[in-house]
Design a protein around this nucleic acid. Structure first.
Lengths: 231, 231
DNA sequence: AATGTTTCTTGATAATTGTCAATCCCAGGA
DNA sequence: TCCTGGGATTGACAATTATCAAGAAACATT
C-alpha cells in the first residue's frame, strides 16, 4: 500500500481516533484492490467477510428479488458500505458492483469486530457511521413513499446543483442507473425529464441545465428531512 | 416504577449487559409514561431529546412531506425506536404516535450518550440494535422497490401466518394503517385482498384465512432477505 | 334502540408507470 | 473508418395505482 493511500485512509472518520497499533494491524490484514467496471464485489445473502471502503471510483449497491433488480445506493470515495452486516456478523442484504474502475480497501470482518471490541474511539466512530447509514436509508425510503417519480427526479437535480455549485450539472452516472436508483424505468426517466421542461430543465445527454431554479424548487418542494445529506 | 417493569426492562438486550450502577442511573433519570391512543410522542425535524422504549401498546412511526403522509414502521413491546438520532445527537427523521393506549419508557438522550461512552457492554448492545434497525429499513425499502402492492400484501399475510402460527390470522391494526404501511391507499388494499382471492385468501373484517398456503406462497415468492425479520 | 362517526368496499375515472418495439445516437474496438 | 453493442428516446398500449364519490358495514355514543 502506498503511503499516501494509507494517510488518506487514516484520515477517514472511522479510523482517525483509532489507536496506532490497532490501525497498523488493520492495514496489515487488509487488501487494497483495483477492480474493473461491472465487477461484483459482494452478493446479497452471502456472509459478510470484509468491510469494503471505496478509495477511488464508484460502487453501486443493488438488490434483486423475483427476477427484478433495483439500485439501492451509490457509494463514492471515501466511504464504506454495508457496515451493519459486519457488526452483526450477518449476511449481506444487498449486492455491490463497481460502476467504473475502482480501488477498494477490503478489511477482514474478524479484525473489524475485534478492534471494535477493544478500541473505544473506533467503536464510537463506527456507531456514528452506522447512524448515518441508517438515516440515509430512511430518507431514501421516505423519498420513494412520499413522492412521485417526477418529484424525485426534480429533487435529485436540485441536489446535484448544490453539490456541483452550478446550474449546469453533469449527471454522475448513466441515466439507466439514475432511473433505477430513483425507482423508475429508463423510459419513465426520459418522460420525467420532459415533464420538467416547463420548469426550466434543459437536457443535452448527461448535461442538464437548470434555467429557473425557483420554478423547479417550487415544483420539487425539497425538504431537508429527505434531501439534505448532512441531516 | 414497578419492580416487574424494571425487571422487564433490565432483560432487554440493550440493557442486560449494562453495569448495575449505570442501569440504576438510567432508570432514575427516566420516565415511564402511559399515553392514550393517537398521541404524538415525537415530531420529525425536532431534536432527539429522549430514547423511547415501548413497554406496552403499539407505536406508529410515520413521515410527512408536502401534504402527504406515510406509515414507515410499527413498533411493538419491548422495542426502542429512533436510536440513530439519539446517538448522533440529530433531529428525528420520522414522527411517532401511539396506535393504542401505550406505556413508553423515555430515557434522556444525554444519559444514553454518557453511558454509551463509558459502558462497553451497553455500547456493543446499542450497535447491534442499530444494525437491526438499519437492516429492517433496508428490507422495507427493498420490499417497496422490488414488489407490487399485491405482492407486498401477500408476503405480509404470510409473515403474520408464521408469527401467529395459524392459517387464521388477525390483522394487528386497522386496514387503513396496514395500507399506509404497505405503501398504498386503503382502496387499493381492498382491491389487493380481492386479487388474492384466487390464491385462497378469505377476508372477514380483520380476520383473514389462508386456505391454500402453497398457492399464496407461489404467488408471493417470499425471500428471507426481505421477509425474515431475524435476518 | 337510535343516532352519529369512522372504516371499509366498490365503481367510475384519471393519472402514473411499466412493457414492448423501433429508431437514433454515441462510444469503443477491430 | 466501419461495425457493433449499449444507452437513450419516443410512441403505442397495457397495467397498476390513485382519486373521487357513494353506499354499506362496523363501531361508539347517547
Amino acid at each position: 500500500m502506498r503511503p499516501e493511500d494509507r494517510e488518506q485512509i487514516r484520515r477517514l472518520n472511522i479510523f482517525e481516533g483509532m489507536d496506532d497499533e490497532n490501525f497498523d494491524e488493520l492495514i496489515r490484514a487488509s487488501y487494497l484492490q483495483t477492480f474493473p467496471a461491472q465487477m461484483e464485489l459482494i452478493t446479497e445473502g452471502e456472509p459478510a467477510d470484509f468491510l469494503h471502503i471505496v478509495i477511488e471510483g464508484c460502487v453501486e449497491l443493488f438488490a434483486q428479488a423475483n427476477g427484478r433488480e433495483s439500485t439501492m445506493a451509490m457509494v463514492y470515495p471515501v466511504n464504506s458500505f454495508i457496515l451493519a452486516a459486519i457488526l452483526k456478523d450477518a449476511v449481506y442484504l444487498m449486492s455491490a458492483r463497481t460502476n467504473k474502475k475502482s480501488r477498494v480497501l477490503m478489511i477482514p470482518a474478524i479484525n473489524v469486530r475485534r478492534i471494535f471490541d477493544t478500541d473505544p474511539a473506533f467503536s464510537k466512530a463506527m456507531v456514528v457511521e452506522l447512524s448515518n447509514c441508517y438515516r440515509s436509508v430512511v430518507k431514501d425510503h421516505k423519498n420513494i413513499k412520499l413522492r412521485t417519480s417526477v418529484e424525485r427526479l426534480a429533487n435529485r437535480l436540485l441536489r446535484y446543483r448544490i453539490a456541483q455549485q452550478t446550474d449546469d450539472i453533469t449527471l454522475p452516472y448513466d441515466k439507466k442507473l439514475l432511473a433505477s436508483n430513483l425507482g423508475m424505468t429508463p423510459e419513465n426517466l426520459s418522460r420525467a425529464f420532459n415533464t420538467l421542461k416547463p420548469y426550466g430543465v434543459r437536457v443535452d445527454g448527461n448535461k442538464i441545465s437548470i434555467t429557473d431554479v425557483d420554478e423547479l424548487a417550487n415544483f420539487a418542494k425539497p425538504t431537508p428531512l429527505i434531501d439534505d445529506q448532512s441531516v
